[in-house]
Design a binder for these strands. Sequence first.
DNA 1: CGTCTCTTTGAAACGCGTCAATGGCTGTGG
DNA 2: CCACAGCCATTGACGCGTTTCAAAGAGACG
Lengths: 227, 227
Amino acid sequence: VDIAQGRLFAGLPAEARAAILAGAAPRLLTARQMLAPQGAPATTFYVVQVGHLKLSQFSPDGREIIARFAGPGDPYGGIVALGQPTYPVSAMAVEPARVLAWPAAEVQRLTAAYPQWRANIVQEIARHMTDALDRVQELSNERVSQRLARTLLRLGAHGIPRSGSAVEIAHPITRQDLADLTSTTLFTVSRLLSRWEELGLIASTRGHVSILDSAGLRQKIDVPEDE
Amino acid sequence: VDIAQGRLFAGLPAEARAAILAGAAPRLLTARQMLAPQGAPATTFYVVQVGHLKLSQFSPDGREIIARFAGPGDPYGGIVALGQPTYPVSAMAVEPARVLAWPAAEVQRLTAAYPQWRANIVQEIARHMTDALDRVQELSNERVSQRLARTLLRLGAHGIPRSGSAVEIAHPITRQDLADLTSTTLFTVSRLLSRWEELGLIASTRGHVSILDSAGLRQKIDVPEDE
DNA sequence: CGTCTCTTTGAAACGCGTCAATGGCTGTGG
DNA sequence: CCACAGCCATTGACGCGTTTCAAAGAGACG
């Protein structure tokens, strides 16, 4: 669980990594604990050490949109480095987790002292921006089955290898979560997963999903759903 | 047409503005001319002086998604200040236009010399990121009529005042453009605009739209479409 | 003045959301 | 340790908003 190896610390000498880590305080989270709500003043920059966070937005009528999941090495609240006043998304632990926390003032000091660290954080934010644009594309042009297949493969890319070529998604995830990730309903997700399970593409238990045939899933992106 | 008054130059002393402007070269565009295609190496930072650019993405199958329109004072290609390698969206002039162009090296030099300028550019980019997230929300939760009303009001906010309380959208815009902005088809847009024109909410001629009753349009956001 | 682009309107099909009802798994408290 | 209460998942039927396809009209440009 060595955060200092992650892409946020790429290109930094060991002494810089040590100095930056020295500015952080660890914080423990229980499952379903809220780390920071969307719209709250952005006072702290976080990096996940253990466990997973769910980063999501809530619409006025209570519907949830999951932006992404953050696992070990992933940052949350990078916008404090850009001087944004509030968090654009909420962060909640989906399982017991441990995060490192840097106060905004500390981030100011450290980014000034280590420009490469600032560049890495900004880089990460830029990636999330292009991700958001890509998502608008997908929402506009693709069917639910295509988006769901894409989402599963994306989650599987950071998953845990199982027997054979199977990969299990690294954190607990419900049908509702998958629906909130792909902008659909849990019913449609359930129907698709049932069908794909019959085809041997995936396997699932309550709160967990494994990908058995990633090549077959990839086809579902190109060829919507015919049968 | 004084760019130096825009929000990109907020908080900068006059001499800094002059120094920054001195680093730019003007460039003229004809209607429908492509300034930079999505995916091309990000070598230049632009600010619109006259006219309007259409910033859009194209999906593999040729469908277009318009991210936004950029008018006088609006930047394009701010990601060069973040060190991103390529443009995430294409920029094309929708009418004859004039832009200022800074080469990447010049941007490096000027942002180092004037940190406030860098902060303004980053600020702008952060806004576009939250915009993209908001758009995902809208695409997921709202009907076409709501999104279209929202889009028209957004465009009208930068429009040209006409007789009475009418506001004309500042640049040429087709039904297809509105469809690409709201992620729908030109047919659905045409139907909605026809109905709203009967209700006296808008007026339109080929390639142009005016908002006559912005309060009435705003209602269409909250109350989808009943009649 | 012809051609091309933009627009309108209708009719039909379809994907997916909504609603309803049921069943299974999990963790907690008696 | 068992049982109950919640949460999560499944499946079917139905309806509705939009897309799709087709065909024709109208304005703009060279």
